[in-house]
Amino acid sequence: MELTDRDYKLLEALEDGIPFTPEPYVVLGRHAGMGEAEVLATLERLCTGGVINRLGLVVHHRELGYTANGMVVWDIPDAEVARVAERLTDEPVVTLCYRRPRRLPDWPYNLFCMVHGREEADVRASLADMVERLGLNAYPHDILFSSRRFKQCGARYAQRRKVESIA
C-alpha cells in the first residue's frame, strides 16, 4: 500500500510512543493534526496493510535479563532457503529471520536469524538443539554474539520521519 503524507504524520507522532493517558489517541491526534477517529482508522489501515508490523509494548530484552543476543547466519542453497526459514521461524527462540544477499567472496551467508537467551551458553545450546532436530548440520553456519552496544535508538527515515524498524 502507498503511504500518504497523513500516514507519515501519524507515524512521526508515534515515534515517541503512545501517551499514558485514558484517551491516548486523542493526544496522538493532536500531535499529528487529526481527530481521534482518523487516528484509529489510520492505525487500523497501517496494521492491516502490514506497514505497522505490531503495535504494543516495545521492550528491552537486556533489562528483562536476556543479555545474550546471537546473530546466527547460514549459507543455504537458494532453492532451499524458504523451506529452511519456515522451520526456523517455528522455533520459539528465533525472533527474526531474514534472507539477505551473499557478498562473495567476503560473505557467504544468505539467511540470518536472531536468537536471544539469558546467557551465551543458552543461545549456543538452543542453536545446537535446533541444528540437530531440524537436520541442519550440512549447512555452513556461524553465530555472532554482540560484545558491546555502541548505539541503539529508533530509526530516522528522514528528518521528520523517525520510526523504529526491525532491519
Binding site: 505497522i52 530509526a155 520510526v163 523504529e164 524498524s165 526491525i166
Partner: peptide
Amino acid sequence: LSRLGAVVTPHRAG
C-alpha cells in the same frame, strides 16, 4: 519498556 508504539515493517516506510 522502551515505549508503547509501532514497529514498522522494513522497507515499507523508507
